[in-house]
Design a protein around this nucleic acid. Sequence first.
RNA 1: GGGGCGGUAGCUCAGCCGGUCAGAGCAGAGGACUCAUAAUCCUUGGGUCGUGGGUUCGAGCCCCACCCGCCCUACCA
Length: 597
Amino acid sequence: MTRVLSAVAWPYANGPRHIGHVAGFGVPSDVFSRYMRMAGHDVLMVSGSDEHGTPILIAADEEGLTPQALADRNHRIIAEDLAALGCTYDLYTRTTTRNHHAVVQELFLGVYENGYFVEQTTYGAISPSTGRTLPDRYIEGTCPICGADGARGDQCDNCGNQLDPADLVNPRSRINGETPEFIETQHFFLDLPALADALGEWLDGRAATGLWRPNVIRFSQNILSEIRPRAMTRDIDWGIAVPLDGWRENPTKKLYVWFDAVIGYLSASIEWARRLGEPERWRDWWNDPEALSYYFMGKDNITFHSQIWPAELLAYSGKGAKGGTPRQYGELNLPTEVVSSEFLTMEGRKFSSSKKVVIYVRDLLSRYQADAFRYFVAAAGPENQDADFTWAEFVRRTNDELVAGWGNLVNRTATLVAKNFGAIPAAGELIDADRAVLDTVAASFDTVGDLIARHRQKQAVGEAMRAVAEVNKYVSDSEPWKLKGDDQRDRLATVLHVMAQCVADLNLVLSPFLPHSANEVDRVFGGTGEVAPMPRIVEVDDLDGGPAYPIITGEYSSFPAWERRPVVVGTAVAKPSPIFRKLDPSVVEEELARLGA
RNA sequence: GGGGCGGUAGCUCAGCCGGUCAGAGCAGAGGACUCAUAAUCCUUGGGUCGUGGGUUCGAGCCCCACCCGCCCUACCA
């Protein structure tokens, strides 16, 4: 048994999340975590809503809400969506908890005391009316290079050049049109160059395992060569206070949202342990060098997980060029693997809420089965390269593969058993064909499990579906519907027993991908419908006196083992109604009509 | 501009260190069967592996150039 931390990217709470987000980290991390639990590992899966930062402030202003009120609303929506997808977080929390604030400040102090923060004066834009930093992208003006108007402070869309906002002609705020004020301001910079050697050593070691996806490890090593100090504080009034005298009281100096967001993996682990009543339990995943940690995210987050976060961990642990010693949390583990997915597009275009090229998780789940979506993501998601979600392909994958292949096998098996015996019959003597199909299916535990462990879910689900096809072929070859009369009764029983066993096996193999239907299939064959544990939303009090909030958690100790469970002869099986819903081709047009032109 | 990834049958994609690597699924065509959500099973795949060069006994797989798409390169997350 190994301790495995599943660290899942924190969705940003400036709005509801669309299916591109959950396709990148939500579904893959849950498939992996479910499998690892079944394989007998001690999994801790944590995530939460990322609620600080400028975009939330701006979204709140636009709606006339406080940032906390906006975050409250979106956190609840996102948590409910993730739970509805069946994502088995041990804890899905948020960054506005008192616990998170305290952990972030502890990390800051550790890094600070070890000397990995350097104070620097920078020149930046603020909004004169609010005193807040105006990030580059929120400034626009005339491009000093090509003269185009509407250039953003970070880049001109017309000529593509990167800009310095101070160079813009007639700069103005994109938020309220006022002219930004460029001021000198003090910030703490994380001394990444002092951590570069340690980072490089860690990355080399990771590269040597050959486990990381090639583009992720290459990219991570590449950005190391241009490493430089990076500001970890901001002029903003929404975020976590800098825990130092002279800073703590300053309402417009907060920690950079990314400094705090990645610490969420640790703070959520600590919160989980505290809620368990065993406040030190988190250390099993963070201080034990034998523990493994897998970080799931989209490719735009690689920098923060293969550079910033490991740098914070190294700095806190005192393992950079400046040395140092860790504070109360001790030496913290660096990521075992950064599992980054690529991007999902929608009907060939980038997701865009404003252009209505989007489908939110909630809307999808209101009309379609969660498992149909999970299947699509596992089979055709952005695992190695950008993938396109089209409604036509979604319908096809659902109808032709999930329903026609797996759903039909379940259905025909249950129907044959119900009609002929009413319960799972005992097998007579097995013939070669019986043994062959049983062996094929049994072998899929190894092949599929191994592929999931290596984050090759496309291939894993493909192997599982290939086994499904093998069983369908076995059924066709065996022709149980022709086995009539008393003299063939024994053979009929044997075939149906073998079919039931294969379905039970494949149901387990597919359960990380299709947890909801796995439970339904189990029920059809007389089980309790608990082969795939489900998460639940719970309203909890803040541990340290803050306001209450909803979390996702669950009881996951009942995961079945990743191996064949012999079917129980005599278990009653009734003729089922179809578990998987076939989609009418007309949904393609309907859904396309909902999208923007 | 710099870095990275991809461009393989109508569609979605596999092809690890160069030598059955020219493949799978779906669609299409033909057939079988009827337990099953008109599901299943069998048969059927001549695509210059983006373009042009090069290395090699031999190249989707290595090198060079170019074309196309995408990502990163932000005091956005």
